[in-house]
Computed example of a mutant assay.
Amino acid sequence: MQRATSFKPAGSVADAPDGVVILPHDGRHLRRKLLHLDNGDMVMLDLKEPVLFHHGDRLLLDDGTTVEIQAAEERLFEIRARDTLHLIELAWHLGNRHLSAQIEADRILIQRDHVIRDMLVGLGAEVSDIVEPFQPVRGAYHSHGGHGSHGGHHEGRHGHG
């Protein structure tokens, strides 16, 4: 079985990967784990510290080959707003609730939560059920390759004054 102890960010490796592992967004925060590839092979990931992987990141294997991490399709809500300011307001409400969100120029994607859906509709958003890969914005306390890591941050809910 191959072992991976390092990685390269998406877009930094030109060669085709030798394998692919497909993971949902909450399964891409990894340090040590046995990964099952799409071709049936297994790779032992063994990093010094946890990393939040992006779609397209590459694991570097002991033999010099690479495995690409791909975002799995997930059941999401697609949120559309009346205009840019409304989209910003909706993003603020989601951030205030510490929800993982993929923010784009004309929409926001979140994991399905019917209580949040009701809130968004009440705020005038158009909310649709979709299934596609989910790549939420990395939080300020998540590390990727040693950038901005704060190991002790708790992402639970807390009150705001």
Rank of each mutant, 00 (worst) to 15 (best):
F77V: 00
F134Q: 11
H154Y: 12
W92M: 13
W92R: 15
R28V: 04
F53E: 08
R80T: 06
G159K: 14
L35P: 10
A81Y: 07
D46K: 04
R117V: 00
R75M: 02
A140R: 14
G148L: 14
R107V: 03
P9V: 07
R107D: 04
D62L: 01
P9N: 05
F134E: 09
R82V: 00
H144F: 13
V67Q: 06
V43T: 07
K33I: 00
R117A: 00
G156E: 07
H150T: 12
P136H: 06
D15C: 09
G56H: 09
R58S: 07
R138Q: 14
L85I: 07
M1F: 13
L123V: 03
V131L: 09
A140V: 15
L47N: 00
A105E: 13
D15A: 15
V137C: 09
H154F: 09
I79S: 03
L120A: 01
T65M: 09
H158N: 11
F7W: 13
A91V: 05
L34F: 03
R157V: 09
S6G: 09
D113Y: 03
V20Y: 15
D118I: 07
L34N: 07
D38S: 14
A16V: 03
I88A: 11
I22R: 14
H144K: 09
H147G: 07
D15N: 13
H160G: 01
L120T: 03
L94F: 03
V137A: 14
G146D: 06
M42L: 08
L59I: 00
H86A: 06
D18Q: 13
A91I: 08
N39Q: 04
V51Q: 15
G146S: 01
R138V: 10
V137G: 05
L59C: 03
R138D: 11
G56I: 10
G64F: 02
T65L: 10
H160F: 04
D26A: 05
L59E: 01
E74T: 01
G145D: 10
D57E: 00
S12M: 13
I69S: 03
Q102R: 12
N96T: 06
S12Q: 15
I130G: 02
L47Y: 02
G56A: 11
D18Y: 10
L47Q: 04
H29L: 11
S12A: 11
G122M: 05
G156P: 04
I108S: 05
R80P: 00
R75C: 02
L52A: 13
T5R: 13
L45C: 06
